[in-house]
Every structure is written in C-alpha cells, then in structure tokens.
Amino acid sequence: MTSVKNVLVALGVAFTAYLAARGLWWTETVPYPLAVVAALGLYLATTWICIFWEPSRNEHGGDDVMAVASLKRTQQRLPVPAQMLALASAAIVPTAISLAVGEEWRTAPFATWYLGGIGALMTIVMVRRRPWTAWTGIALLAVASMFWMGWASALALGLVGSIVWVTCAQLLVLSLDRAARDTGRLAQLQRAASAWQASQAMRQRERRVQVQEALAVAGPVLTRTVATGGRLNEEDRLEARLAEGRLRDEMRGPRLLDDEVRAELERARRRGANVTVLDEGGLEGLDENTLSIIRAQLAEALRSASSDRLYIRTSPDERVAVTVVGRSPSVGGPSEEDGVDLWREIPHPGAA
C-alpha cells in the first residue's frame, strides 16, 4: 500500500520537474542557453536532494506511542549541507537565469519559472524543519527578482505565491508539532490510567483473598461467639486470640508466611507469647524459591524461641532479609525493663 509520505514525495518531484521544464520551453532565442540549462540542473539536483536526503536515524529513548514515532520518522530535519545547497540555489539560480535570457526576456514565462521554483524549494525546506533557512531563501529570492525585473513585476509574476506557500508550510508544520505533542500527552495519560486500573484490580483481588482468609479463620470463632451470646470459655477465648493473631499476620506480613511458619507462630501464641509480624519492605521482587529459604530459616528461629514477646520484621537492608527479636522480663522481676534474649538476622540467600 502506498504511504502518504511516498505520495507527497512523488508530488514534490513531479511539481518541481514541471517548474524546471517551463524554463526549457523557450519561445525566443536566449543569449546563453548553456547557463540556463546549468541553472536548471542545479535547481533540480538541489530540490531532489532536499526531498530524498534523510539523516542517519539515531533514535534515542524508548517506545512511545506508535503514532508519535511515525510522526517523528516523517519529520526528519534537513541536513546542514542540503540547507547550504538550497541557499546557494536561491542566490545563484535567479541571477543566472536573468543574465542568461537577457534583459529583453526577463519577464517572459520561460524566464520567470524560478519565482515558483525557488518558492517550491523553500517550501520543501520548511517542511523538512528548517524555517530559518526557508525564510532566508525567500528573502534571497525576493532581493534577486526585484533587482532584475523590478518589485512590481516580481510580486505580480509569482513572488507573492512563493511567500504564501512557505507561510502555509510553516503553519502546517506547527500544527503537526502540536498534534505530536498532544498525542504524546494522551499516550502518557492512557498509560497512567491503565496502570492505575491494573493496580486497583490487583488490590481488589488482594482484598477479596484477604476477606476469604479472614472468614475462614474467624468464621468458626464468630459463629461460636454468636451462638453463646458472647459468653466464651477459656478455650474459646484462646481460639479467638489465636484467630486475631492469624488475621494480623496475614494482613501485615503475608510474604513471610507458609504452613510451617504459621504453625510456629501459633505454637508461640499458645504458650502465651505476644507475637508481632510486620512486612516493612525488602522482599519485593524475590522469587518463590528465595522466599521459601527465608521462611524455612524463620520457622527454625521461631522453633527455638522461648521469649515472651517476639518481633518479626523484614529489613530494607540489602544484606538482611528478616530480623527476629525476642524480649522477656529480666531476672529482677516483671517491673523492670525487659531484656533482649533473642536476636536473629536472616540474611538474603546469596548475600555476602
């Protein structure tokens, strides 16, 4: 399928070739025909170089939206050598044609083609993202044409049209730039909205899982509580405390838990220990095998613990994964400050 760019390139080549062909359709004998042909050759070569010369594509950054990338690919800036060649043509061709045809024929159709030809060339330069070069070329064209045929003849025979072409091209380029910026912003907003929706969906799934686990843990206790009218015996009270502890563990540190760790936490609570489990970060991105190694070491630490209070926290340190701290009343009595009788740092597997 023919792309829009290829169609525009074909139109540009055909139109500039038509303008140049007008210069070869002499209705009168000109003094220097070879100079006319040389000027036409310079014009065509410059125009087609400006159309076809693409700079080396050295794209930086990641993939934005495909529409933005496509716009950027079709908006390659004209290389500097081509700019210089275009300015040289704007300065040389009008003077060369005017001298070659002689003073008598400077306003003849076969001698004024360069007014439209240089205007078309500067329109191409403008579309190739070189506005200063384009307007400089139009200024050179205006000076040369007014010098050789007078300002009134230059304006009447095509200079105004060339200025209008370049102006319209600049407005079109500005509109495309704005469309590209708007497309980029829209793409960013769409990505942000998609990320937000995905995070909300994930949070909803996590909440559903947590609610299901809470019902599975606390459901039997709540049922007994309702059935007895809130009059629980010691065994029921213990089960209620254990259910509360399990719910806290599932909400505060789910990545630390497996069946073995849950069993050790329940054993510690049944003997009367106060256990706190907190996931404060540091385990993000770990695979299941790594987490299994950490959980096995945590279960081993809990199995040998006899402290009255246990604090289990993850660590943001790149070396330590989990810290287990146990505190118990000092020998002097419960009124004194508790002493630390357990300190265990579980390292990240593979950490030095």
Rank of each mutant, 00 (worst) to 15 (best):
M1A: 14
T2C: 00
S3Q: 12
K5L: 13
V7M: 06
T16F: 09
L19D: 03
A21F: 13
R22T: 15
T27Y: 01
L40T: 09
G41S: 11
I51Q: 04
E54V: 06
R57I: 08
N58L: 10
H60R: 14
G61P: 06
D64W: 10
D64Q: 09
M66W: 11
L71M: 15
R73Q: 07
T74N: 14
Q76Y: 11
L78R: 01
A88Y: 14
I92L: 14
G102K: 07
P109M: 03
P109C: 03
A111G: 06
G116N: 00
M122Y: 01
V127L: 13
R130Q: 03
P131M: 04
T133I: 09
W135K: 05
S145V: 01
M146P: 01
W151L: 02
A154L: 08
A154G: 09
L155Q: 05
I163A: 13
I163K: 04
I163F: 13
V164G: 09
W165L: 15
A169T: 08
A169S: 08
A169I: 08
L171H: 07
L174S: 11
D177P: 03
R181C: 07
D182C: 02
T183K: 04
T183W: 06
Q188K: 09
A192G: 05
A195T: 00
W196Y: 06
S199D: 09
Q200V: 01
Q204P: 04
R208A: 15
R208E: 11
L215E: 11
L215M: 11
V217G: 02
A227D: 15
T228N: 09
N233K: 03
E234D: 13
L238D: 10
L238Q: 13
R241M: 10
R241P: 06
R241Q: 12
R246N: 14
M251K: 12
D259K: 12
E260D: 15
V261P: 01
R269Q: 10
T276E: 10
G281M: 01
D287E: 07
D287M: 07
E288S: 12
Q297K: 13
R303T: 09
R303Y: 02
S304E: 13
S306D: 10
S307H: 02
S307Q: 00
L310G: 03
I312S: 05
T314S: 13
P316F: 03
P316A: 04
R319D: 14
R319S: 13
V320H: 12
V322A: 09
V325K: 01
G326D: 02
G333L: 05
E337M: 02
G339P: 03
P349Y: 07
